[in-house]
């Protein structure tokens, strides 16, 4: 590959030396610059391909292993000691419960906090401190949230090792992301819109409710969905708060014990039998599909939102 590059460059130089066009790069410095331009482009392409290639290899490998295992029974069966009979019903319903509950908890809290920072908070040291801390929270390892959730929700608040505890824990985990997304979306709302509303005698809350939030909703939703697609893959904090590896039933209330897809995958990959690895691969495909769908919705909303604001 690199020898080809050199060839192309050399050929270009020869051509430029022969030409009488006054606009070709002739000086040593100009040619060196051109060379730097081109080499950086190549470094950039290689860097991009590196990540994609590894991911691509992984995806293909998983796909080959798992895709034939996916069928209706796999989606609707309970786990089992026999790999061929085992399914992911409790796992994906658990994940769905967690996603729903987490959204219900994190969205209102995150949006309210975002609105507070952008529309109400005075620019003083206390609020600045809060802001910095929230940004930091986004970087706290998820297992720490698990320990926090175990102490606060499972024990102190007495929710036990349930979906509710799991949802609260993950809600805390993604709260900073939603707050930041809300703030960015609110910042992007043109001030002229607020002034128009205030100018007609609207109160602050009316302005926020009828103008700011609708205009920011695309950005808020996009951020929330991206945060949820992170939450759906989280395993560590849920292990800590006591999600089960083996759940032979479909959870029917927030106070049920539960498992989630990544837990099921983790569980199967740690079994020695090859058939369970196939099951794991199949479950990974399902998890990836969920994540891709979530991301797809987020991208769709973002594009739609951008168009609307311009």
């Amino acid at each position: 590959m690199s020898s080809q590059v050199i060839e192309i460059l050399q050929e270009k130089r020869l051509r430029s030396q022969k030409s009488d066009n006054p606009f070709v790069a002739r000086s040593h410095y100009a040619r060196l610059n051109k060379f730097r331009d081109n080499s950086f482009k190549i470094v950039g392409i290689i860097s991009t391909l590196f990540g994609l290639a590894v991911l691509g290899y992984f995806l293909i490998d998983i796909f080959i292993d798992g895709v034939s295992r996916i069928n209706w029974d796999f989606l609707t069966s309970l786990p089992s000691r026999k790999a061929e009979k085992a399914g992911i019903l409790p796992a994906w319903t658990g994940s769905a419960w967690i996603l729903g509950l987490t959204t219900l908890i994190a969205l209102p809290l995150g949006v309210a906090a975002g609105i507070y920072f952008e529309e109400y908070a005075k620019k003083n040291r206390f609020n600045h401190l809060l802001e910095v801390n929230i940004a930091n929270l986004a970087g706290v390892p998820s297992i720490i949230y698990g320990i926090l959730g175990l102490e606060v929700f499972v024990r102190i608040m007495g929710f036990g090792e349930t979906l509710l505890s799991g949802a609260f824990t993950l809600a805390l985990l993604i709260l900073p992301i939603i707050i930041v997304a809300t703030r960015e979306a609110i910042k992007a709302v043109p001030n002229t819109l607020r002034e128009a509303s205030y100018g007609l005698g609207a109160s602050k809350w009316q302005t926020i409710k009828w103008q700011v939030l609708p205009a920011a909703s695309g950005g808020i939703l996009t951020g929330t969905i991206l945060a949820l697609s992170r939450a759906v893959g989280e395993t560590a904090p849920l292990i800590v708060i006591g999600a089960l590896a083996y759940v032979p039933f479909v959870p029917s209330s927030p106070m049920d014990s539960f498992t989630v897809l990544p837990m099921q995958i983790f569980n199967w990959t740690s079994r020695p039998q090859a058939a369970f690895l196939v099951n794991a691969a199949a479950a990974i495909i399902i998890l990836l599909v969920i994540t891709f769908i979530l991301n797809g919705i987020a991208i769709y909303l973002r594009n739609k939102w951008q168009k609307k604001l311009i």
Binding site: P190, T192, L193, E195, A196, S197, Y198, G199, L200, G201, A202, S203, Q211, P214, A215, K308, L309
Partner: peptide, 18 residues
């Protein structure tokens, strides 16, 4: 709020609500 209902304002750049 009450004052601004009595004293309307039109801005430099047209700013209709979306």
């Amino acid at each position: 709020d009450e004052l601004r209902k009595k004293i309307g304002m039109v801005f430099q750049k047209p700013n209709p609500f979306p």
